[in-house]
Simulated assay, not measured.
Amino acid sequence: MLQRIYFEDYTTGAWRETAGRTITETDIVLHAGQTGDFFPHHMDAEWCKTQPFRQRIAHGTLIFSIAIGLTATVVNEVAFSYGYDRLRFLQPVFIGDTIRSKVTIKEKRPYKKPGSGLVTELVEVFNQAGACVMVCEHILLAQLKT
C-alpha cells in the first residue's frame, strides 16, 4: 500500500505492533548460507548441548532482518530509511521462538537538508514470552509538507 506520511504527520509516542513470525531451522540454515556465518552456535546442535544455552541460537543479523521486515507494511513515498543506531541483541532467539516487533516514534528533529526532517523510531523485538530480545533505533528521512 502506498502512502504519504510527511514529517509533520509523525507523532512522538505513537506506536504500532506487528504480527508474529516463528523462527525455523530453515531460516537459520538459509541465513548461514547467505552470510557465510556457519559458527557452531547456529549450526551444530550437538556442540550447542555443551554450551550455556543448550541449543542452537538464531543469528543476530537474522533476527534483525526478520524483525525489520515485519515492520515493512506501508510504502511511504515521502520518507526513506536513513539507517539504524544502537542495535543490541538482548537475549537469544531459538528455533521455534515467535518474534514480533513494536515500533514507537521516539523523536523528531530538523535535518540539514532543506524540506526534510529526521524521525527516530524505537524498534523493540519481543519473543512469545514477552521478553525483549532485540532493540534498535531506525532513523527515517522524512519530507516536510511545506
Rank of each mutant, 00 (worst) to 15 (best):
F64K: 14
M134I: 03
D85H: 06
S81E: 04
T98F: 03
L30S: 09
G36S: 11
V103G: 02
N76Y: 00
V133E: 00
F89A: 09
F39V: 14
T98E: 08
Q34P: 02
K49V: 09
F94M: 13
P114E: 04
S101P: 00
Q143I: 10
A67S: 10
S116P: 01
G20A: 08
K49S: 02
G117Q: 06
A72S: 05
R54A: 02
T73W: 01
T22N: 00
L118A: 14
Q55H: 08
C132G: 02
G115H: 04
T146M: 01
Q128F: 00
G69W: 01
I68N: 08
G83S: 11
P52L: 10
A131T: 07
G36H: 14
M134Q: 10
F38P: 00
Y84A: 05
R21F: 00
R54G: 06
H41G: 05
L30W: 02
K113P: 00
L30C: 07
A72C: 13
T50N: 06
I66T: 10
T11Y: 00
Q55L: 04
W15A: 10
A32Y: 07
S65F: 07
H138K: 14
H138Q: 11
R21A: 07
R109G: 09
I105Q: 15
T98H: 09
T146P: 09
L140W: 12
C48W: 00
N127A: 05
P92W: 06
D44N: 07
Q55N: 12
V125D: 01
N127S: 10
E46Y: 10
V119K: 15
E8K: 14
R54L: 00
L62Y: 05
D37P: 08
R16L: 08
L70M: 15
A14M: 07
L87M: 13
A14S: 12
L2D: 07
T18Q: 09
D9R: 15
E107T: 15
V123T: 01
F80A: 12
R54M: 00
M43Q: 08
A67N: 10
G117H: 07
D97M: 05
D44W: 08
T12S: 06
I5K: 10
L2Y: 12
R16N: 02
A32L: 06
L30V: 12
G117R: 08
R56P: 03
V125P: 12
T24H: 02
K102T: 14
N127L: 02
I139M: 11
T73V: 07
W47N: 01
A131C: 06
T12K: 07
V75I: 07
E124A: 07
V119S: 09
T73M: 01
C48A: 13
V75T: 08
L122I: 15
L90Q: 14
P40F: 09
V119W: 13
Y84N: 03
K112T: 09
I5R: 04
V125H: 11
Q91R: 15
H42Q: 05
P114V: 05
V119I: 14
A14T: 13
H138L: 12
I139V: 11
Q55E: 03
Q51A: 15
D27L: 15
Q128D: 08
V133Q: 01
R4D: 02
V103E: 11
C132I: 14
Q91N: 13
R88K: 13
D44I: 15
T24F: 02
V29C: 05
Q3I: 15
R21L: 06
V78P: 12
H138P: 05
L118C: 11
V29Q: 04
V123R: 14
G96N: 05
R4W: 04
Y6D: 01
I68F: 11
V93K: 01
